[in-house]
């Protein structure tokens, strides 16, 4: 009986974290896209310059 209670609790906490994990993955994607494609620092711009142009990101 006690065993079952624990497993129910585990699966419900997994449901919550599934959505949270998907959101975290998308946040990592957004951060990466910003640094490579949009960050205004000269160093980031110069390193990724040709890639920014080729993905038609706004540049310069």
């Amino acid at each position: 009986m006690q065993q079952q209670a624990i497993s129910t609790e585990q699966s419900s906490s997994l449901t919550l974290s599934a959505a949270l994990q998907v959101i975290s993955a998308m946040a990592v994607g957004a951060a990466l896209l910003f640094v490579v494609g949009f960050a205004p620092m000269d160093v980031a711009h110069n390193a990724a310059h040709d890639a920014r142009h080729s993905f038609a990101f706004p540049c310069h």
Partner: peptide, 11 residues
């Protein structure tokens, strides 16, 4: 940079 953008889009 292309690979990094690829990873970001894939995420």
């Amino acid at each position: 940079a292309d690979i990094a953008i690829g990873i970001a889009y894939a995420l």
